[in-house]
């Protein structure tokens, strides 16, 4: 029996049961249908990304491979959704059906590219967020806890990074460093840590003079014990919230860079590049699905992580404002 059910039971018996903050948060999250729907979408997206090789063998269209059957012989446009599917969905090989059409004028399979693009987005979103959070925690906690000129230097650094034009600098840096997955991850992390960093700094600043910290210090706790045992647990709430928002930001940033044609090497599928593939020669005018499939998936993914982060914030801190 889960704690919440237990609680419901006790309530009917007219008893009051104390609940930990974590139980309260989960109970609130369970009632937040928008956040739950977002979570379901994200789980489905992960499954969709994992199914890439399945789609490859099912359609007979390997990732990043051009198919002559994917381009219309007369119009030279990528074929539309359900092309060649008259003989059933699973006809294999060159004649196989394009469930969602082809994704560019080389005849890549849209479904396969979308699935592998989802991998790219998720990997970049998660790894960049991990790095972002590590740096943000480290610098945010140091700035907030140590204070003094250390704080001043770190706070100024945050201001400088915040004022930097991300895309412009990322484009310039990608010329110098060359295209690679790690470059994209690092440049995104480099330009995203300041925001959660400011939040963590603010939290620590407001926590470090509270009674429980003074009490711990009075009992002889070392600085590292105070930071790790007393302060860090308080940061888990904001950490989860900003991690979710940061995944959304990182996915959007990668897509924007790829849309402009910088950052990722060509052999890594990306939704942003799929959208940009629809642009040359006004391809999207004649075949709007080329941009609509990757574009819609991108919007929903970013929206889902944003809404989840928002739901988490409401669940963890009901006093704080929602996204508005």
């Amino acid at each position: 029996m889960s704690t919440v059910e237990q609680f419901e039971d006790m309530k009917t018996e007219g008893m009051v049961l104390a609940r930990t903050p974590r139980q309260l948060a989960f109970a609130r999250l369970r009632r937040d249908y928008v956040a739950l729907a977002s979570l379901v979408f994200i789980i489905l997206l992960v499954l969709f990304a994992l199914a890439g090789p399945l789609f490859e063998s099912w359609t007979g269209h390997p990732v990043n491979k051009s198919n002559s059957t994917g381009v219309d012989d007369y119009t030279l446009l990528p074929v539309g959704p359900l092309h060649g599917c008259a003989n059933g969905l699973a006809s294999v090989g060159e004649r196989a059906c394009f469930v969602l059409g082809a994704s560019n004028n080389l005849g890549y399979d849209m479904l396969v590219q979308l699935s592998f693009g989802a991998r790219t987005s998720l990997i970049i979103g998660i790894v960049a967020t991990f790095l972002t959070m590590v740096v943000a925690l480290l610098l945010g906690v140091i700035a907030g806890y140590v204070g003094g000129w250390t704080d001043t230097v770190i706070a100024r650094l945050m201001d400088i990074v915040a004022a930097f034009p991300f895309l412009l600098f990322a484009i310039a840096a990608s010329v110098a460093f060359g295209a690679s997955l790690w470059f994209v991850i690092l440049i995104i992390a480099l330009f995203s840590w300041f925001y959660p960093g400011r939040i963590f700094r603010g939290e620590v600043l407001s926590l470090r003079n509270r009674e429980f910290v003074t009490a711990a210090r009075m009992l002889g706790a070392s600085n590292s014990r105070i930071v790790f045992r007393h302060l860090m647990p308080q940061l888990i709430g904001p950490l989860t919230v900003y991690a979710s928002l940061s995944v959304a930001g990182a996915i959007a940033a990668e897509a924007a860079l790829s849309y402009l044609g910088f950052g990722l090497p060509l052999e890594i599928p990306s939704w942003g590049r799929m959208i940009s593939d629809a642009v040359p020669g006004g391809l999207y005018i004649n075949a709007p699905f080329l941009m609509v499939f990757p574009g819609t998936l991108l919007v929903f993914t970013v929206l889902a992580f944003n809404l989840l982060g928002d739901g988490l914030r409401d669940a963890l801190d009901p006093r704080g404002g929602t996204i508005l």
Binding site: Y259, G272, G295, L298, V299, V302, L303, N306
Partner: peptide, 19 residues
Amino acid sequence: TIVFVLIGQSLPVYYFGLL
């Protein structure tokens, strides 16, 4: 308004532009 704000924040400006 809240719904539009959420969509506006998550819609990449270039995709919106193409649409």
